[in-house]
Amino acid sequence: MNIFRLTGDLSHLAAIIILLLKIWKTRSCAGISGKSQILFAIVFTTRYLDLLSSFISLYNTSMKVIYIGCAYATVYLIYMKFRATYDGNHDSFRVEFLVVPVGGLAVLINHDFSFLEILWTFSIYLESVAILPQLFMISKTGEAETITTHYLFCLGLYRALYIVNWIWRYYFEAFFDLIAIVAGVVQTILYCDFFYLYVTKVLKGKKLSLPA
C-alpha cells in the first residue's frame, strides 16, 4: 500500500458517498445516469467475487464490501425510492454497445482463461467506460449540478491517483498489471475534458453548463 493508492481509494469512496448523500438530501436523482450506476454495480460485483475465494487484508475486504453495498444502495435509490425523479429520457446511452464489446474483449485478452479471471478482466474493462452514460447525459442536457461535478471530479481524481500508484509500484515493487494500466489510462483520458471544465468553471464558482 502506498499513499497514492490509499488516497485514490479514499477519493473513490468520497465520490460514492457524495453521490449517495446528494440523492438522499435532495430526495432526487435528477441529472444522475442510472445506467452508469448499474454499470458500476456490475463492475464491483464481477470484480469482488474474490471476496469468497481469497483474503488480502481487512482493509481490502472492508472497502470491497462498502463499495458493493453503496453501489447497490445508489441503484436502489435511483430506480426504486426516488424513481419519480429519475430522468430516464435523458439517460439514453445504449449500454449494450459497451457491455457486449467489453465482454468480448475480456474473453479475448486476459491474464488467465478462467471464470473468475475473465470476470475480473470484464470488470476492469467495463469500469473504464462505465461513466460514459453519465457524461453523455451531461452533454445531452448541457448542464450538471455542482454537486454532480464534485462527484465526477472525485471519481476522476481516483483514477489519476491510481496511475501514480502504478508508476510507484513499477519502480519500487517491480509490479505491473498491463490490463489494469491500459484500462486505467483509457478511463482517465475520458475525464480530461471534464477536468478542464471543472477547473475553468466550477472552481471559479460557475455552474457547469455547456455551450448549446
Binding site: 481469497s54 491474464h111 488467465d112 500508484n165 505491473f176 498491463l178
Partner: peptide, 10 residues
C-alpha cells in the same frame, strides 16, 4: 509480463 492472479488492488 508477470501473470497476476491475486488482485490486491480495489
Amino acid at each position: 509480463w508477470q501473470r497476476q492472479t491475486l488482485h490486491d488492488e480495489l
